[in-house]
Design a protein around this nucleic acid. Structure first.
Lengths: 241, 241
DNA sequence: GCGAGACTTCGGCGGGTGCCGAAGTGTCCG
DNA sequence: CGGACACTTCGGCACCCGCCGAAGTCTCGC
């Protein structure tokens, strides 16, 4: 090694280390899968990524050590999930930049096709709503003056009141911004993320405005949900079918 | 290669490719240097990164092919700069996540110390103001009701009027958001980025509210600048010395 | 033109990393 | 308590990638 090279930029080293953590197809596949916001077992991820359990174990070790994943051991299972909202945002942001180039791929089988269009209609993205559903809701917020998007991305006072009257509590402690734009990779437009997006999604699942389909992160709007979205946001019933 | 493995997730492959582009200390150092928003020659970057010209040439090839850098050939020089605002934002966001861990490093020499504190006082971050200067301006915007940060991050109507009366034109075409939060790595708080941040920075340099110091991206507020910031934003003269 | 200078291409070296299967550890359940 | 199961550790293999210096290409200025 060169002796004089003690002045390597520590920021560059850190940046390379962080991105190197994601710069592997298997680890990337895991991170994308974990964007559903739920905890997966190591075995599930190994099958999902198509590698041996031993290989995946090493990958998980790196991701946990690197701070992107958090783990919980339960008996003989090792559950992992994205470490926090900032980790999810990181993966989302990176994935959004990538998606435009790869979104041209067409589904090959009917099963893939229906699964794909279910995902496109509505899904969760970490802890908020995405897909057609996420966009329609975000647009309705904007149209009704609850969300300001022309000069940035922020809830309005009317927006705060809306959450209040809808009975959805907003967690305004912590540094997490209330509203944040998250680029939707099927719609290619931003949808509502941040603490408000998370609160809305949580409430939507709790109140059964929508339910998860299958084991994926796709969701389907229920009849109850259609009524609620129509009443509270003026969203027409047919739009989400 | 395995024949059956045609179903590798293209999104994961793209994500790995993108991050792999940054996951090298030398390339990361280049990207961080280019965050000043200006064009560097290949030779300058090679010296900056401490590698041979031939090595750096290959790195630049990858970064340009990967879409992160744009190049301009002028005679025997090859100038490179960040491809666009989205590329800059990508690097900024990643760097911001990294900074907290590495910011503990203390300057070792007087030269480094003064250069460091000049950077901390004020600098450009791609095309907007950062450092103490960026934070003070952003805080002044918030305090005067020009920028709304409690529910997201957006200019207010008063904010739009401020730009108008200050004679700073805002480019509202294009998809670039007017206001966006960019995490400051010396102050560890968000400062104003986006089209409005860029317009403000451009105006500040044009009207000589601040000038660049040395060849780095540090900037210094002039007397003219102190008067302007005091009049237009109520920023006290002493704060930025 | 012709040399100096900036950049690129090439060959080759060395180290790092992902992959696997086999063996080992810990947990659950009958 | 013993077998099934989930995960981890280990050794070994193959490949990729960054690095350099030498030689090549291109441009500028005299």
């Amino acid at each position: 090694m060169l002796e004089g090279m003690t002045t390597r930029d520590p920021r560059a080293a850190g940046l390379a280390r962080l991105t190197g953590l994601i710069a592997d197809e298997t680890r990337a596949a895991c991170l994308l899968a974990l964007l559903d916001g739920r905890a997966w077992t190591a075995g599930e991820l190994a099958r999902h990524a198509g590698v041996a359990a031993s290989t995946l174990s090493e990958h998980l070790g790196k991701l946990v050590t690197g701070g992107l994943l958090a783990e919980e051991r339960q008996g003989r299972h090792r559950y992992v999930r994205l470490a926090d909202a900032t980790a999810a945002q990181l993966v989302e942001d990176l994935a959004a930049r990538v998606a435009p180039g790869t979104a041209v791929r067409r589904p090959r089988t009917l099963r893939e096709s229906t699964a794909g269009s279910a995902m496109a209609r509505g899904r969760t993205c970490y802890d908020h709503l995405a897909g057609r559903l996420g966009i329609v809701v975000t647009d309705a917020f904007t149209a009704r003056g609850l969300l300001r998007r022309d000069t940035g991305f922020a809830l309005t006072d009317a927006g705060l009141r809306w959450f209040d009257t809808a009975g959805i509590a907003l967690d305004r402690r912590g540094r997490r911004p209330l509203a944040r734009a998250c680029l939707d990779w099927t719609e290619r437009r931003p949808h509502l993320a941040g603490a408000a997006g998370a609160a809305l999604c949580r409430h939507a699942l709790q109140a059964r405005w929508c339910v998860r389909i299958g084991s994926e992160r796709a969701v389907k709007v229920t009849d109850t949900g259609e009524r609620a979205l129509s009443e509270l946001l003026g969203i027409e019933a047919g739009v989400l079918r």
